[in-house]
């Protein structure tokens, strides 16, 4: 601290200088990531304006004329378009199913892994469980087709042999209801193992003393899971749940695209595919920007609401 009286008026600036001398290099380090975010995340946000302007990607969005209906032409258009409504419905349906079936899966798996006492076996199991995460959906869809095709898929060939009826087959990929099931189950298969990592990490943070104390009090294995492990995982679970709810309208692109076929488009067309088909393929950039903006706004609303709810229930939340 500079205490020289004659320089008192500039005390503040010299403070700043001293601070910068000390921490300047850290700020210098920050410049690059900041530049990245400004250039690639914030500057493109100008194009959000495109959602309210006429459809043209060659002109500066500031210079474009406003769209009709007070700028809301594209929003009105999207909501009048039955294919968009369908895509919206499918997105919500598939994401909810994913959440209900897929969200608990890694928790259960982590609990199971945690109970394994044979270290080596645990390690191998974990590795095997992580593997599907590294396969792309294109590869998985190819595998799925070879296994599940109605007529010459392996599963159906076995099914035919078992039932002795050459016409018997389960329409995994061609019936809309079955397809939704296939979609969700494949999603769990691919990501559940990977999802356990974060829970397993949280589990290491639980003090072994708690388990010992519970054991001394006569708690069995299930009681210990219920009263020690799960409460220990609660903050992690809540955080991930909030983040998942923020993605409720977001949709994966490659997964529905790769798994879909012409018989199940009624349930497989999600918003991301709608955006791809109308934006990139049909050059309706304003319309699809509007759809993207709508998706983000709804996502933020869900995120904030879930966060508030978590806080009200006494959790820490993420914001």
């Amino acid at each position: 601290m500079n205490t020289n009286a004659s320089r008192l008026p500039s005390n503040r600036s010299s403070n700043f200088r001293a601070y910068m001398r000390r921490y300047g290099t850290l700020y210098l380090l920050l410049i690059l990531p900041l530049a990245f975010f400004i250039i690639f995340r914030y500057v493109p946000m100008v194009w959000i304006l495109g959602a309210f302007k006429e459809n043209n990607i060659f002109k500066n969005p500031w210079e474009l004329d406003w769209a009709k209906n007070g700028g809301f032409e594209w929003f009105v258009k999207a909501f009048k378009d039955r294919t968009f409504i369908n895509a919206l419905r499918n997105t919500i349906m598939l994401n909810l199913l994913d959440l209900i079936c897929g969200f608990p899966a890694p928790i259960l798996l982590a609990l199971l892994l945690n109970e394994l006492s044979f270290k080596r076996f645990k390690k191998i199991t974990q590795t095997v469980l992580y593997m599907p995460h590294f396969l792309s959906w294109i590869i998985i869809s190819g595998l799925a087709l070879r296994l599940l095709a109605s007529n010459d898929g392996l599963v159906n060939i076995l099914y035919k042999r078992m039932t002795g009826n050459p016409d018997a087959s389960i329409p995994f990929m061609s019936n809309t209801n079955w397809w939704v099931g296939t979609y969700v189950v494949l999603g769990i298969w691919k990501e559940a193992g990977w999802g356990t990592i974060i829970y397993l990490a949280a589990l290491t943070g639980i003090s072994p003393e708690l388990y010992e104390a519970a054991a001394v009090d006569g708690a069995g294995r299930f009681k210990r899971i219920w009263h020690v492990t799960l409460p220990g995982l609660r903050p992690t679970i809540i955080t991930l749940l909030i983040m998942n709810l923020g993605r409720i309208l977001g949709s994966e692109f490659d997964r529905p695209l790769a798994l879909s076929n012409k018989l199940v488009t009624d349930v497989s067309q999600v918003i991301s595919i709608y955006v791809y088909q109308n934006g990139l393929k049909a050059n309706k950039f304003a319309l699809t920007t509007a759809v993207g903006l709508f998706q983000s706004v709804v996502g933020v609303i869900f995120l904030v609401a879930a966060n508030a709810m978590a806080k009200r229930m006494g959790e820490r939340g993420i914001m």
């Binding site: 109605s150 990929m173 061609s174 790769a258 076929n261 012409k262």
Partner: peptide, 11 residues
């Protein structure tokens, strides 16, 4: 061919 609809364009 029973499964024609299930295979995509690049199959």
């Amino acid at each position: 061919w029973k499964d024609f609809a299930e295979y995509a364009s690049d199959s």
